[in-house]
């Protein structure tokens, strides 16, 4: 096996891994304000992709569908927050885990019945003929995924680290009540984070659909790997997910080649359980000192 082919596989795997990173980043956004994540995030990816496909079928241009899809994703994020998360957070319970799973199940079933169970192609104006860059072949489509993911994540990270709003995110996550006493509306902050997370899920759906096609199960494998990425990187490390996502993407392409395509999912899962054993707060997560 020539090294160049291995490199080629690793790189296209890593580019795919950025999609995992983007979905994982959606978990981090909500975790940052409320220590909760949407277990039905994959369904948001899928439903937003279907919605965007429907708009494209109606004849709208891709560049109009993109923002519409993001808005739709944000709206779904708000639905999840209202129906699944808010009450549990107010009661300081972990009921949101079950409720977001339930909402995901509902979205899945609705999508199955509204759009059918078949996989459908997703048209895009970005060409998919491969071009030769620095000795490996990549497609503009793959590159667009990378650019889109990094740009959006960079923008949101900037917002979180440099603005007062970002600090308010953190404050609400540390202590909801104390945040309220500063005049920060915990409710609105959490809503905003869920809306952002929904938009990020929609972006992931729109970017990845031309590669994977659109179908009810399109996101179930993706989201499982995003879970691994988020936990391995740590739920509070924005740039950790990028590294872990790319690493995992490369690893599983190689694993499916060397071990067998059925084992494609395995590295992520093994990596997850191993990472938990070694460093429960994630490789890039903040290690907490236990205080009493």
């Amino acid at each position: 096996m020539p090294a160049s082919i291995v490199a080629q596989m690793a790189i296209s795997g890593a580019l795919m891994g950025l999609v995992y990173a983007l979905i994982a980043y959606g978990f981090q956004l909500t975790y940052a304000t409320s220590k909760s994540i949407n277990f039905g995030q994959g369904e948001l990816v899928m439903v937003s992709a279907f919605f965007s496909l429907t708009l494209l079928d109606l004849g709208l241009s891709y560049w109009l569908v993109l923002p519409a899809g993001l808005l739709f994703g944000a709206a779904l994020g708000l639905v999840v927050e209202r129906a699944g998360v808010r009450l549990a957070l107010e009661q300081k319970s972990e009921g949101w885990i079950l409720l977001t799973i339930i909402l995901g199940l509902f979205f899945f079933s609705a999508a199955e019945n509204i759009w059918g169970r078949d996989d459908r192609p997703f048209p895009t104006p970005i060409p998919s003929d491969s071009i030769h860059v620095l000795g490996v072949d990549v497609t503009p489509l793959e590159l667009s995924v990378a650019v889109g993911v990094l740009a959006v994540m960079g923008l949101i990270e900037l917002l979180k680290r440099r603005t007062l709003l970002g600090k308010a995110f953190e404050a609400v996550s540390v202590d909801r009540d104390a945040g309220e006493l500063m005049g920060i509306s915990a409710k609105r902050t959490v809503m905003l984070s869920y809306a952002l997370s929904g938009a990020v899920a929609a972006l992931a759906g729109i970017l990845v659909s031309p590669i994977t096609t659109v179908g009810p199960t399109m996101a179930s494998a993706l989201v499982l790997k995003a879970f691994s990425v988020a936990v391995v990187a740590g739920l509070d490390s924005g740039f950790g997910v990028v590294l872990v996502g790319m690493f995992l993407g490369a690893l599983e392409t190689l694993a499916s080649f060397y071990v067998g395509s059925g084992w494609r999912e395995a590295p992520g899962l093994v990596l997850l359980i191993l990472a938990l054993a070694v460093r429960p707060t994630g490789v890039f997560g903040k290690a907490a000192i236990r205080k009493v």
């Binding site: 936990v231 992520g268 359980i273």
Partner: peptide, 28 residues
Amino acid sequence: LPALRLEGPQFALATLSFTALATTALNE
């Protein structure tokens, strides 16, 4: 042993991954 060093969402994720891994193994 590893998973119960975690709480809440991380634990749920770890068990979810275990389910996926088990299905993969039974299939493969």
